[in-house]
């Protein structure tokens, strides 16, 4: 505990200031309750997500290097991003800047040309879940819980890029023994790669019950193809929702605005088509933690969720 730092640069990403406002608001609430401090990264730019990297390599390096440079300017060595896509993009840039000297030098020259301070050192990026788990942890969550999520059965959906690939996310098999050689970039605070459990641990500490959800907990939701390849996304989301429902989940806890939006959008489309067992609503894990900490449904903006988890939570007396 306490190896990452209590005060970090907070890179919310574009989505959290628009359609995923609920995630931003509830993240700030949870951080405040857990005694952690988020330093908003002023004037950040888009990370390029999963889309821009298919068009341009150097462009995405530059986009992320600019954000890193801003974090360094604000005096931070650690960036925390709540979105899988954002943390992936920053970690990807971190990988190429660290391993490829030519890329690093070219990026620094271009940053200077663009009027941004060059990087003196490369800040590390963490997903917000990893940060919560290591700086506060289940014990602290338990202490802060005033209204336990008793009786709530949660399917913890991690999505792809929180644990993968290990080159960027630095995850490793916690049960394994000889990982040092094959995972040169592993980080001790990182989650288990194929069986992530940080979200389970935090929500269980808040009183919820996790349902069996493997292997769908890290199955893709369609991600960057949510809009451009509807048929595939629809099938993937159907598999995720049906597994959750059939394993008895009341709600799906998410930790990425894109996964969340994709699940909610295709849940609705599947329901219109009359596909069975897909009516599980989704909520950000920070929203659920916020409820457990005694905040109201309005405080954590539960009404922003298109899939409307309120009826389920009301039925269990949690909201």
């Amino acid at each position: 505990m306490g190896v990452i730092g209590k005060r970090v640069a907070y890179y919310p990403g574009c989505s959290l200031e628009g359609a995923a406002r609920a995630y931003d608001v509830s993240t700030r609430i949870v951080a405040k309750e857990l005694g952690l401090e988020l330093d908003y990264l002023e004037d950040y730019n888009c990370c390029g997500a999963m889309e821009s990297k298919n068009v341009t390599f150097m462009g995405t390096m530059l986009l992320n290097a600019r954000n890193m440079s801003l974090a360094r300017k604000q005096g931070h060595n650690v960036i925390v991003a709540p979105c899988n896509g954002c943390s992936f993009s920053l970690q990807r840039a971190e990988y190429f800047l660290e391993t490829d000297r030519a890329v690093f030098e070219k990026v620094n020259a271009l940053l200077r040309e663009g009027g941004v301070d060059p990087l003196d050192q490369i800040p590390q990026t963490y997903h917000i879940l990893e940060w919560f788990y290591h700086e506060a942890g289940p014990q602290k969550v338990k202490e802060k819980t005033r209204k336990p999520l008793r009786g709530l059965k949660v399917a913890n959906y991690y999505g792809c890029l929180y644990t993968r690939p290990h080159f960027y996310a630095r995850t490793y098999a916690h049960a394994g023994g000889q990982e040092e050689e094959v995972r040169p970039r592993r980080r001790d605070t990182a989650d288990d790669d194929e069986h992530p459990y940080y979200m389970n641990a935090l929500l269980e500490a808040a009183g919820a019950t996790s349902v069996e959800f493997e292997p769908m907990h890290t199955q893709c939701c369609g991600g960057p193809h949510s809009l451009s390849d509807e048929a595939v996304s629809e099938k993937f989301v159907m598999m995720i929702l049906q597994t959750a429902k059939r394993n008895g989940a009341d709600i799906i806890a998410t930790e990425c605005p894109l996964c969340h939006a994709s699940l909610e959008m295709y849940r609705h489309r599947l329901m219109l088509k009359g596909v069975p067992d897909v009516d599980v609503p989704a909520a950000y894990f920070t929203q659920l933690l916020g409820l457990a900490f005694g905040y109201s449904a309005n405080d954590v903006k539960l009404k922003d969720n298109l899939s409307d988890p309120l009826p389920v939570l009301k039925r269990l007396g949690l909201a």
Binding site: M50, C160, L161, T163, R164, P165, C220, H225, D229
Partner: peptide, 11 residues
């Protein structure tokens, strides 16, 4: 073009 960038392959 159908790759959904889930990175299971890379991982």
């Amino acid at each position: 073009w159908r790759c959904v960038s889930c990175h299971k392959c890379t991982h």
